[in-house]
Amino acid sequence: MTDGPTFAPAPRLDHDRYCDEIVEQTRLLRRTLGGTDLSARVPTCPDWSLRELAVHVGGAHRWVHEIVRTRATEEVAEDTAPGFHGPRGGTPDDLDAWLASGAEQLAEALRDAGAAAEVWTWVPQQSSGFWARRMTHETVVHRADASGAAADTTTYRVAADLAADCIEEWLDLLTLASADDPGMHDLRRHAGHSLLLHATDTPEGGSGDDAAWTISLGPAGIRWRRARSSATVTVRGPLTDVMRVLHRRLPPDAGPVEVLGDAGLLHFWLDRTRWA
């Protein structure tokens, strides 16, 4: 269980898999962007066009690459990361090549460093392993943004183990934030209540606990555990879609997702967890 202000995540995936997924999820993002109008607005990130979304992802890859490559022990200014602001050329092909090369460079630096290398992060876990996991899910979630903007949501799917880890990484970060972030302190008004995330398409051979997460609200913050239990409100549906709801990339009353119980608590949770 993740409890209180501590930050001791237990990733489901190993370091090499995260490195592979940074490249693969970027490839899938590039495929979504191919042939689309890059000036189109992104509904789930309304301040951005598709091009700006892509530059955000690729810039983050390059920034973290610089942190890991140099084994930085203090924060690195984003502007100092080579290529952070996007490709030199303005064509879609330039953007595509820039995204691909940035993901490859980041994955290579993370592999060279290994998961335990000490580097600066914005959480107590000061390791390259944190960045491998964070950049994987940064790319997974922004791929959902791009799919929505490109009207390609029917093909957006994430492997079960990756989607489950995406849920858990977000819950780890929210657990940490709930101890310090003023916006999330409002959740303490609902101490004693809970949310259940329940995936209905558990892979064959998986256990019920592997596809369900209970989030408890308490006076000191939030706690979560892998378990299916009674809750104030339940979000149930396909794993990828439950993940998208948690990240506010899918309305909770959309598609095959069901909300059972106190929907008001769910909306309150989603509003207060805009932290990132």
Rank of each mutant, 00 (worst) to 15 (best):
R27P: 03
L29A: 10
R30I: 11
R30T: 10
R30N: 05
R30C: 04
R31N: 07
R31T: 15
T32A: 00
T32C: 02
G35V: 05
T36S: 12
T36K: 09
R41T: 15
C45H: 12
W48P: 03
W48D: 01
L50C: 13
R51F: 12
R51Q: 14
H56S: 00
G59N: 07
A60P: 02
H61Y: 10
V64G: 09
H65C: 03
E66L: 15
E66A: 15
E66T: 15
I67P: 12
R69H: 14
R69D: 10
R69Q: 13
T70Y: 03
R71A: 01
R71Y: 08
A72L: 06
T73A: 04
T73G: 02
E74P: 06
V76R: 13
V76G: 06
V76F: 07
T80V: 13
A81T: 04
A81R: 13
P82K: 06
P82L: 12
P87S: 10
R88T: 13
G90M: 08
D96K: 07
A97P: 01
L99A: 08
A100I: 06
S101Q: 15
S101M: 08
S101P: 00
G102F: 08
A103S: 12
E104I: 05
A107R: 02
L110M: 09
R111K: 03
D112E: 09
A113M: 05
G114N: 01
G114E: 12
E118S: 14
E118K: 12
V119L: 04
W120D: 11
W122Y: 15
P124T: 06
P124C: 04
P124V: 00
P124K: 05
Q125E: 15
Q125P: 00
F130Y: 15
W131V: 10
A132W: 02
R133Q: 14
R134F: 14
R134I: 11
M135Y: 03
M135T: 10
H137R: 04
E138L: 12
E138P: 04
T139H: 04
T139R: 05
T139Y: 07
T139K: 13
V140Q: 08
V141R: 07
D145P: 13
D145H: 06
A146C: 12
